[in-house]
Design a protein around this nucleic acid. Sequence first.
DNA 1: ATTTTATTCTAATGATAATTAGAATGTTGG
DNA 2: CCAACATTCTAATTATCATTAGAATAAAAT
Lengths: 224, 224
Amino acid sequence: MELKTAMTSRQDLFDTLAQVGKALGSGHRLMLLERIAQGEASVETLASTADLTVGNASAHLQHLRRAGLVTATRCGKQMLYRLTDQRIVTLMGLMREVAETNLAEMERLVSRMFPDANPDGALEAISRDELLSGLNSGDVALLDVRPEEEFEAGHLPTAINIPLGQLESMLDELPRDREIIAYCRGPYCVLSHEAVQRLRKLGYQVRRFDEGFPEWKAAGLPIH
Amino acid sequence: MELKTAMTSRQDLFDTLAQVGKALGSGHRLMLLERIAQGEASVETLASTADLTVGNASAHLQHLRRAGLVTATRCGKQMLYRLTDQRIVTLMGLMREVAETNLAEMERLVSRMFPDANPDGALEAISRDELLSGLNSGDVALLDVRPEEEFEAGHLPTAINIPLGQLESMLDELPRDREIIAYCRGPYCVLSHEAVQRLRKLGYQVRRFDEGFPEWKAAGLPIH
DNA sequence: ATTTTATTCTAATGATAATTAGAATGTTGG
DNA sequence: CCAACATTCTAATTATCATTAGAATAAAAT
């Protein structure tokens, strides 16, 4: 047995900092964070989005909580988790950029998962700046294809919500005269890719926004 | 045994992304990265800065390499590791901010480790913007207190190098008529704190830069 | 009070990761 | 080719983490 000195060491500092890294070091926890970034959610909701048992999800959420990434508040029977800090969205975005730039495996997975996101193809996504100028000039209509609950918790200004499951049954909400920009949870969410593919087959002029609601919000842009 | 489908799943994407988080989820690896961010370094150098056996350091470096955070090139007998990407410095900086904001433990450790960094005290560090304007107006002199090897690998413009061990023996290099700004490896490096304390005792007008060389470089500012 | 529902805790198991010592590899300079 | 050196690999140990099922807690509804 070794005596612990009361002295604080550099090692302690880095170990504590590493807790944040550890929390980000699990695919399951990153999925939970992706969902939490849409707005507060209950353990059950989070468990089902991340495809975990409730007990397991709860344990991961405790882990995220100890790392200072999320907080929880009780609301009736439920425990609602939310991000402590919008910078966490930026942090995950940077991780994504670093991974996509420097991990061959990542690039391979992304292009397999989203084959339509080919840079040559007409389906290429539009950037935040392009979207902003499109919105200013009124040239585009915004389509939020996330579930209603997430839309209600916050969405881009002027966006209309058609959850993916109801896409074909709500086509009359969509304009034919303007380009439609679909968005969802973020770069690794399939919803907007799906929506674009299905709407294109129906003849709509539609592209994806290459980020999602959390990134828009974290950038300090206005939300509703 | 379960059959692996060839299909790429969302889970695979997030698991791969999590490799970056995992790599950042160890105090030892964060220390290695802090040193690598100063400039390329051999395994032996890195092992000794992070207080690891060479074998263990090598294993951690392999881990960082697999996560796409560092690359290695052979140079004679030695293997030199460097960052793949300056964004990794930004990434670590964000982790630090998130941790300091949201982890009480972190705040406690920082203020214990750097008691002189008290915001009320005269020793408060100066920011990048303040430093830039001080350099433009010629009101400050820059002092790099890192080991010579790191200084040689890159430093802030106009900085003079006095490694901490030689501080008292090289006082004649320091101006008395201007404020001195000392900097080192970054926010969690003790060198500049030490330097400021020792120089203040000797009557010098001196403050710390609240970042370090890697942050300056990652911000795209000029280096020598 | 009792039941229901949501969540967290506990204990046990299996899976990963960190560490060390020592062997193996690859490079340099005789 | 051999000797010296730097690094990586291997094997074994220990520690940490993820997962599950089931018990415990806590609030809400009957």
